Amino acid sequence: MNTDSMMMGLMGGFGLIWASGLLWVLTRWSASEQLGSNPAAGIRTVATTASSEAWAAGHQAALPWARRIGVFGMILGVALVTTAFLPVAGGSESQVPHPLSVAFFAVGYGGLLLGCVPLVRTANKAARQAQPQR
């Protein structure tokens, strides 16, 4: 079995599952005010950290995006883990990971990162609307 392909599948897959799940859980906790504004976790922008109301409103609005990204990333993470056990062309001496490992890795992590763009935009918009007009 190709150890490079196995490592990419296992480490990349479990990392993607963890990151996607963490994004979803932290957003949900922040939306329900179990996790208040803090210096380490959550959607931290000028708008969302302006007040506790803005924090909750921004995370509540971003929750559907976080759910989509979380489910997407976890599904691709499981698929990536399964590729660790697929044989590669050239046998165990091949230094090239399985093509599906590369594809699931790129699509999974790319989707996670690109999905954060509309998530943050949605959170910012809702957080600004939650602020009293001056």
Rank of each mutant, 00 (worst) to 15 (best):
T3N: 10
M6N: 10
M8L: 15
L10V: 15
L10G: 08
M11A: 15
M11P: 00
F14K: 01
I17C: 12
L26Q: 11
T27L: 01
R28E: 14
W29A: 14
S30F: 06
G36M: 06
G36N: 11
G36V: 09
S37E: 11
N38C: 12
A40L: 15
A40H: 12
V46C: 00
A47D: 13
A50S: 15
A50Y: 05
S52W: 01
A54F: 02
W55D: 04
G58R: 10
H59F: 05
A61W: 02
A62G: 10
P64S: 03
G70A: 08
F72R: 04
M74L: 10
I75V: 15
V78W: 03
A79M: 15
A79W: 03
V81N: 00
A84F: 05
L86W: 12
S94K: 08
V96Q: 13
H98Q: 07
H98E: 05
A103P: 00
A103F: 14
F104T: 15
F104Y: 14
A106M: 14
V107D: 02
G108Y: 03
Y109I: 12
Y109Q: 00
G110C: 06
L113R: 00
L114G: 02
G115N: 04
G115K: 01
P118V: 06
V120K: 04
R121G: 05
A123P: 04
A123E: 07
N124R: 13
N124M: 13
A126D: 06
Q129E: 15
A130D: 03
Q131I: 12
Q131E: 14
P132Y: 00
